[in-house]
Amino acid sequence: MSYETYAELKQLVLPHLQPIGTNYREAISGEQKLVLTLRCLATGSSFASMTVPFHMSNTSIARHVLATCEVLWKVLQPTEMPIPNEDKWKSLAKRFGDLWDYPFAIGSLDGKHVALVNPMNSESLFYNYKGYPSIVLLALSDADSCFTLVDCGQYGRVSDAGVFQASRISQLLDQERLIIPDESFMVSTTEKRIPFQVVGDEAFPLKKNLMKPYAARTLDTIKRIYNYRHCRARRPVECTFGILAKKFEIFQRPMRLQPDRAITVTNACTILHNFIRRRDGHMIDRTSEINYEIRPNNEQGLMNLRPQQGGRNSDEATEIRDLIAAFFNDPRGSVMWQDQNVFRNVLLLED
Rank of each mutant, 00 (worst) to 15 (best):
H113R: 09
Y226L: 00
S29K: 12
A143C: 10
L323N: 10
W73H: 05
S167I: 05
M336A: 12
F54K: 08
Q175S: 13
F54V: 08
D174P: 00
T287W: 01
P195A: 09
S134M: 08
S91F: 09
T221N: 02
V342C: 06
T190Q: 02
C269T: 12
E176W: 05
I263A: 09
C239V: 14
A115K: 11
A93C: 09
K74A: 12
R332V: 15
Q338M: 08
D339G: 00
E8L: 15
G162W: 00
E316I: 15
E86A: 13
H55K: 15
A325S: 06
F327V: 04
K90T: 13
A317P: 02
E70A: 11
F96R: 07
R224A: 02
A325H: 00
C269I: 02
G97M: 11
Q77C: 11
G242E: 02
F327W: 15
K88H: 12
Y292W: 13
Y102L: 05
H64W: 06
R332Q: 15
D87F: 08
L36Q: 07
Q18D: 08
D151C: 10
L72N: 01
S108N: 05
R332A: 14
A105S: 15
R39Y: 11
T266E: 02
F251C: 08
Y228N: 03
F185K: 00
P254V: 05
L34E: 06
K212A: 05
R232N: 11
V52I: 14
Q171E: 13
E293N: 10
P259G: 07
V342G: 01
L66Y: 07
S334D: 08
K90R: 15
H16A: 10
A325Y: 00
H282D: 12
Y6G: 05
G44C: 06
L323R: 09
C40L: 15
P181V: 06
G21A: 12
R95A: 13
R193S: 14
T190V: 03
I83S: 12
N227Y: 03
Y6C: 06
A115S: 14
D322S: 12
S141I: 02
V158F: 00
C231H: 11
A326P: 00
G311M: 08
R177H: 13
I61F: 04
G200M: 03
M303S: 14
M186W: 10
K192R: 14
N209C: 13
I28A: 01
L305N: 12
T240S: 11
L257A: 07
P78I: 09
K247A: 10
K208Q: 10
T287L: 10
Q258F: 04
M336I: 12
C231A: 14
K212T: 14
G97N: 11
C69D: 07
L125P: 03
H64V: 01
Q338H: 13
P103L: 03
N209E: 11
S49M: 01
M255P: 02
C239R: 15
R235A: 09
A67L: 06
S57F: 01
